[in-house]
Simulated scan of single mutants.
Amino acid sequence: MPENIGMRLPRWFAERSAPAAPEEELRVSTVELFLDLVFVFTVTQLTALLARDFSPADALRAVLAFVLIWWIYGGYCWVTNHVPPVRTTRRVLLFTGMGGFLVIALALPKAFGDGPDGVWFAVGYLVVVLVHTFLYLQASSRALRLLPGNLGATALVFAAAYVDEPWRTGLWVLAVAVLIVSPYFIKQEGFPLHPGHIVERHGLLVIIVLGESIVAIGIGAGDLPLTADLVAAAVLGLALAATFWWMYFSDEAERAEHALLRIADPVRRTRLVLAGYFYAHIPMLLGVVGVAAGLKKLVAHPFDPLYPGPAIALGAGVSLFLVGELLFGRALALGGSPLRSAAAVLALASAGLGLVSGMAQLAVLVLIAGGVAALQRSHAARL
């Protein structure tokens, strides 16, 4: 099969397709942002799944579902990096993929139950996998390397809908394992990436996902009367989200782009993107989900003791974000505060304080995350 091919589409749908040249500057398009907004609905649903009863089983399910969804979302980031959605064909395909993501999100809260939602989750996943492959094939046949792993994981999710626990969760674990290890069995030549687009696309997604923690505050407040306690909790929740923004965007995004641009070898650059923008972002985004779920429960009665689930979600959420930041900095050789690991441990330990007062735990977490952000900013200023 030739390396670059044009798909044989019906005449009414066919367009000449070509990948973006590696030296061409590529920025994020509005249709990609539209896709991101649909994708973030899955994050909202994950928060709802976790906040349902904060059980370890639901936490595991949220992680498994997120990794599956994050894998294919990352695939869409890469394909629009290689094949920009500047033509009608590509945009229609992206809208079709959005439909698949919407089905995934709608099915997610009950995807591990006994009803048909697990099947619908798999149907949505199959749609986004096929659209992703179809888009990539407009530029290169190398995309076929990805298809066996993607279809294999989809088949496992389909099968999981027809078995009982613990086999159901076991098949989901296997599906995630297939996707996580598949990059090590795929030759990574032929996937040139535009660093500016990758950095901008993920940065915009992080901004949107951080907004989920603010939405969670509003949902938690609901129709409650506006009191000084509620306002204080909401402002502290915003402050915590702001520390996440500060850690991620205070010079680090720009330095990450420069670090990728300095890599001349496209295969090595691809591996760094995979390490920094796929693997390292998993704990970061899961951390935001945990914080959002905890804030949702805290804001209504901020000075009351939290139940163990929300307290652990808050502490683990900040801890995971810090771990993700640490992994991201190491993957791209950006450096950072050596105290970040200790701060992650302290954040997790703050759950004990939450059992006494949710507001006290939230205040301590703001101080921990804010301290790391300040140290990181000071370190970046000396570079």
Rank of each mutant, 00 (worst) to 15 (best):
E325F: 12
V163W: 10
G218F: 12
C77P: 00
V267L: 06
Q376S: 15
A369S: 15
S378V: 14
G371F: 07
L126A: 15
M247S: 08
P2K: 11
V128I: 15
L144F: 13
F303K: 13
F13L: 15
P10G: 05
A374M: 09
L298S: 11
P22D: 04
V173M: 08
A316L: 15
A256Q: 08
L9V: 12
L94R: 05
W245K: 11
L174Q: 07
G287H: 11
A380V: 15
G324H: 01
P10R: 14
P109T: 06
L238E: 00
D58E: 14
E212W: 05
A48W: 04
V288H: 07
L126F: 12
A311I: 06
W70P: 01
R168S: 12
L156M: 11
F54I: 06
K187Y: 08
W245R: 11
V43L: 10
G152E: 10
R340Q: 14
P225T: 12
I72W: 01
S357G: 07
I104S: 05
A292G: 12
A233L: 06
L355R: 14
S350K: 02
A143I: 12
V206I: 14
R16V: 14
L93T: 04
G352V: 14
R262M: 08
T80W: 00
A242Q: 07
D251M: 09
A159G: 08
G118W: 08
P116Q: 06
S213I: 00
L205F: 07
Y279L: 01
P283C: 06
M7G: 00
Y279R: 03
A275H: 10
V372S: 00
N150S: 13
R271G: 06
F278K: 03
L320C: 13
V129S: 06
E189R: 09
A280F: 04
W12Q: 12
